[in-house]
Amino acid sequence: MAFISPAMLLLLAMSVFPLLWALYLSFTDYSATRGGPANFIGFGNYTAILTSAQVHTRALTTLIYVVGAVGLQTVLGFGIAYLISRRTHGRGVLTTLFLVPMMLSPVVVGLFWRFMLDAQFGVVNSMLGSVGLGQVEWLTRQRTALLSLIVVDTWQWTPFIMLIALAGLTAVPKYLYEAASIDRASEWFRFRTITLPLVWPLLLIAVMFRAIEAFRLFDLVYILTNGGPGVSTETLSFHIYKVAFLGFNTGTASAYGILMVLVVIVLTQFYLRYLNKLKEG
């Protein structure tokens, strides 16, 4: 097909071929800096990764981060969307204002929060101080560093959930509410039996999308905490980077990457299946 093949060729060259190369390297002990021939070592890299306590720690960190950030975003985003949908005036302005964080580059977001969360001259601690609360070393304590990461991600991506939830909320037909109010249904009953069931499918799409994105998070970690303190904010993506570019274990990093890709593919399949069902239904 003359119209499709150029695009397909590019994707094959820039996405599929690199992945196949990574797949090959994942069975070898190749190192990008040492050079020399790549020795075939079978599933050695895979067993090493799957049994590594280090990797398990990163998997747990990633899980906490994904569940925490996406959960917070969903609750906040839906809440804001619900409040906006009940307004008749200024909806457009409000929506536009709320969307700003989402459009910013993770670099800008990461740098700026790093500045605001600075323990000495950060504005967050300054505000805490002025209301008589103690100072917090946000990015240099283990617990608060991961919390900070979750908060910053939530700040950036709550608008995403809000935007999609708002689309769902405004698409709910008015006559359903009118019928319900004729029946003197309570507001909570209306929310539970009309709003939520109608918005939920679309909201779930947004949540799954965010979960996939959060699972592969790298840049925000790199800028905000650089994985530290210790390894407390190292996500799986960040760990792969360290293995590949600081440890130069290209083979191991490739196997690690392939495993991550497998997870992403499974998640994406769920997402696309669900999306397809929604479109047809």
């Binding site: 994707l11 996405s15 690199p18 190369w21 390297l25 990457g257 890709v261």
Partner: peptide, 21 residues
């Protein structure tokens, strides 16, 4: 579906073989 899947690849994973390439 395949086309969209390529977009979801973690950049850090893709960047290693791309770097070698």
């Amino acid at each position: 579906f395949f086309i969209l899947s390529t977009r979801f690849m973690p950049p850090v994973v893709v960047v290693v073989p791309i770097f070698l390439m």
